[in-house]
């Protein structure tokens, strides 16, 4: 029997497991030893024994869960080979959010890359995705349908600025995930020349401060003072998506409900959210980039973790690339969504 990728990585109840190294990747349950790709709550959970992740991801986890989120931790330097048991692992940037990484796992001449969540589109708040050639590429498929072709983020942010100019008396409440999306929207606004304060919901404050400490300039980002809400005419306010439906957002002057999410590409989804000003900004690869990335890695086999796996598996088939869905439960079933409770806690 030759050694194959399915010997290197197996599926357990907790998620992907490497028997030779004795560790899980992004486990959805507490395990003795975990490698974490990035800080989103569905990938990075509290309560593991030992955690290996990039320094930024470890610091994000500490902000979200407290310093005692695991028993011991180890910082992975990007690009550096780390030996664990019989395997070598290496972290490479994934371009998803601050600190996000793909993890290349290699033993006996077989290399598997667990990409976590990733994107190829430019993002001023994190390092760009790096192609790691491999035998098996494990990919997400959050936007794994050809209807997902994301527009230029500059144009989307301009929509928001145009609306602010058109309705200077109304507050614009933008729902954005507290880790990553929110800071990206801030950075994009700054890039577009918006220099007024960007107001934040309390749930975004700590992570935004962390981004600033990590060297991402985001300008002035005051926290919304509840009693001052009614005075924020024409302001841009960022909050977790769930807060838009809250009483919290109704105290603003005639608020415009906006959402920054890749899901805004599909009308029905935008309407489900109650979006009046949908901004199509995604932290995941769109369809063309999923396909491009699979080919760039040169992988002969693709495993799809979560999302719209059927279409991507089919497409791989048409390309002569072996592919299978893993049907992993627990990863943002509906994609970018983090549980609202997590955000409120963050």
């Amino acid at each position: 029997m030759t050694f194959s990728a399915s010997d290197l990585l197996t599926l357990t109840r907790e998620g992907l497991y490497c028997p030779l190294g004795g560790f899980h990747v992004d486990p959805t349950w507490p395990v003795p030893r975990a490698l974490i790709t990035h800080g989103h709550a569905d990938h990075a959970r509290a309560g593991h024994g030992h955690v290996l992740a990039t320094g930024q991801t470890l610091r994000i986890m500490a902000v979200r869960y407290g310093e005692d989120f695991c028993r011991s931790r180890q910082e992975a330097t990007l690009g550096e080979a780390i030996r664990i048991g019989d395997v070598t692992v290496r972290f490479a940037p994934a371009g998803h959010v601050l600190g996000s990484a793909q993890i290349a796992i290699e033993a006996r001449g077989v290399r598997v890359v667990v990409s976590g969540d990733y994107k190829r589109a430019p993002d001023p708040t994190c390092l760009p995705f790096e192609v790691v050639p491999c035998d098996v590429f494990i990919t997400e498929a959050t936007f794994g349908l050809p209807v997902f072709r994301m527009p230029d983020t500059g144009d989307e942010v301009q929509k928001l600025l145009d609306s602010v100019a058109l309705f200077p008396e109304r507050a614009h409440i933008v729902g954005a995930y507290a880790l990553g999306k929110a800071q990206r929207v801030m950075a994009l606004l700054r890039k577009a020349g918006y220099d007024r304060p960007i107001y934040l919901h309390g749930a975004m404050e700590k992570l935004t401060e962390l981004y600033k400490r990590e060297g991402v300039p985001l300008g002035e980002t005051p926290k919304v003072i509840p009693t001052e809400r009614a005075k924020l005419h024409g302001a841009i306010v960022l909050c977790p998506p769930s807060a838009i439906q809250d009483v919290w957002s109704r105290k603003f002057p005639d608020p415009v409900a906006s959402f920054a999410s890749g899901w805004m590409r599909v009308r029905a989804r935008a309407r489900q959210k109650g979006a009046e000003l949908p901004l199509c900004i995604s932290d995941h690869s769109d369809w063309p980039d999923l396909c491009r990335t699979i080919r760039d890695t040169g992988a002969g086999e693709v495993w799809v973790t979560h999302g719209q796996e059927d279409a991507l598996v089919h497409w791989c088939g048409t390309q002569g690339i072996k592919a299978k869905p893993l049907h992993l439960l627990g990863y943002g079933d509906d994609g970018e969504a983090e549980p609202a409770a997590e955000e409120a806690a963050a």
Binding site: L145, P146, V147, V266, R267, A268, Q308, D310, A311, H314, W315
Partner: peptide, 16 residues
């Protein structure tokens, strides 16, 4: 096949 999957997801022929 990709079109059918997309249509199924979007739920609307015109939008798909």
């Amino acid at each position: 096949v990709l079109f059918a999957l997309s249509h199924n997801y979007v739920g609307d022929l015109a939008e798909t």
